[in-house]
Simulated scan of single mutants.
Amino acid sequence: MACLTSAIEPLRAANEIAGEEAFRWKILAEGDAPIASSAGVFFAPDLRLAEATGPETALDHVFFVASPDGCFEDPIKANAALQRHLRAGGRIGAFSGGIFPLARSGLMAGQPMSVHWCYEAAFQAEFPEIDILQTVLSDQGACQTASGAAAVFDLMLNHIEARLGPAITTETACWFQHPFVRGASVRQKLPALGNAASHDMLPPKVAQAIEVFARHIEEPIQISAVAEEIHMSSRSLERSFKRATGQSPLKYYRQMRMKEARQLVLYGRDSITSIAYTVGYSSPAAFQRHYREIYGISPQKERQAKTSLKITDDSVLPSM
């Protein structure tokens, strides 16, 4: 819902500020039934997808808005409609979890995509052939993707500037107290685990160690080897981590691996045993024990809970 409204509201405001209907939008769906958002708010579609694509509709963009496990009820018919849209000169994109059904369509093969950090592990596991961008936006070829709701707002402001100029864009941003407009080169902010700071606020050596950890999720590395790689003693690295994050480097590293595992549990399709091996555990039992210690629930039960919480086929997902 946040992604959808973040697309519509700046365009609505820009029209009002400019005194003209520079932008129009429609909510598309496969059928006529209202679509439930993850917040339980329903949106009524304006048009069916099959009726809204092709030269006669003159749509500039079609954006996917969905949860990560979203899919078409009739993929062949939906893909045919989207192909008509592309042949007519339109572009396709996706917001947040909508990148999953977009990638499953196969229409954007070879196109890099901006992937929200909380979906990165699951997306990479399902689509290893797609280049993942860690920027807030991507705008390449016929594809535009935005990593989250605020990024969608940025994308719409970029469209407003291209159509109506910087003055209207600035006023639109100020209407919503959106302090600045981010472009496709801006990287996503990542939270430092168990800390109120974001990743870019950490001391340089701690940030370097975390980057080494990230490269060794599947094949764990000793903390002493990490310290040696970033030219620190193990004792100094330990002290630096505790000052910056309140945790030891070993505990932080384990949390990183569990965070990636949880993405795969919630949004991926691999078995729990396969996920354990993917995040560097040789014993699924040890993986499940550490998972319960951090999240208070087994990976099997959390996956089952995600399914039982849905109000439609691909609606409500637990928070990360």
Score class of each variant (00 low, 15 high):
residue 225 A to N: 09
residue 225 A to Q: 12
residue 226 V to Y: 00
residue 226 V to I: 03
residue 227 A to N: 00
residue 227 A to F: 02
residue 227 A to P: 02
residue 228 E to N: 06
residue 228 E to G: 06
residue 228 E to F: 02
residue 229 E to C: 07
residue 229 E to W: 04
residue 229 E to N: 14
residue 229 E to Q: 15
residue 229 E to K: 15
residue 229 E to F: 01
residue 230 I to S: 05
residue 230 I to M: 03
residue 230 I to D: 07
residue 230 I to G: 02
residue 231 H to D: 15
residue 232 M to S: 11
residue 232 M to I: 00
residue 233 S to W: 01
residue 233 S to D: 08
residue 233 S to F: 06
residue 233 S to N: 10
residue 233 S to T: 12
residue 233 S to C: 03
residue 233 S to Q: 04
residue 234 S to F: 00
residue 235 R to E: 13
residue 235 R to W: 13
residue 235 R to G: 12
residue 235 R to M: 08
residue 235 R to C: 05
residue 236 S to R: 11
residue 236 S to Q: 14
residue 236 S to P: 08
residue 237 L to Q: 00
residue 237 L to T: 00
residue 237 L to E: 09
residue 238 E to Q: 14
residue 238 E to K: 10
residue 240 S to C: 07
residue 240 S to V: 03
residue 240 S to W: 00
residue 240 S to G: 14
residue 240 S to Y: 10
residue 241 F to A: 03
residue 241 F to T: 05
residue 241 F to I: 10
residue 241 F to V: 07
residue 241 F to H: 02
residue 241 F to M: 09
residue 242 K to L: 12
residue 242 K to C: 03
residue 242 K to E: 13
residue 243 R to Y: 03
residue 244 A to H: 05
residue 244 A to M: 07
residue 244 A to W: 07
residue 244 A to E: 04
residue 245 T to P: 13
residue 246 G to S: 12
residue 246 G to L: 08
residue 246 G to C: 10
residue 246 G to I: 03
residue 246 G to W: 03
residue 247 Q to N: 07
residue 247 Q to M: 15
residue 247 Q to Y: 04
residue 247 Q to K: 08
residue 248 S to K: 11
residue 248 S to R: 11
residue 248 S to C: 11
residue 248 S to E: 10
residue 248 S to I: 03
residue 248 S to H: 06
residue 249 P to M: 07
residue 249 P to S: 02
residue 249 P to A: 07
residue 250 L to W: 07
residue 250 L to P: 01
residue 250 L to I: 03
residue 251 K to W: 02
residue 252 Y to F: 08
residue 252 Y to E: 13
residue 252 Y to H: 14
residue 252 Y to P: 04
residue 253 Y to L: 00
residue 253 Y to V: 05
residue 254 R to N: 09
residue 254 R to V: 05
residue 254 R to Q: 15
residue 254 R to Y: 08
residue 255 Q to I: 03
residue 255 Q to M: 09
residue 255 Q to S: 11
residue 255 Q to A: 08
residue 256 M to G: 10
residue 256 M to R: 07
residue 257 R to G: 06
residue 257 R to Y: 14
residue 257 R to M: 10
residue 257 R to V: 04
residue 257 R to W: 14
residue 257 R to K: 06
residue 257 R to F: 12
residue 258 M to S: 09
residue 258 M to C: 11
residue 258 M to G: 09
residue 258 M to H: 06
residue 258 M to T: 03
residue 258 M to K: 06
residue 259 K to Q: 15
residue 259 K to A: 15
residue 259 K to F: 14
residue 259 K to G: 15
residue 260 E to F: 05
residue 260 E to A: 14
residue 260 E to C: 08
residue 261 A to V: 02
residue 261 A to K: 02
residue 261 A to E: 05
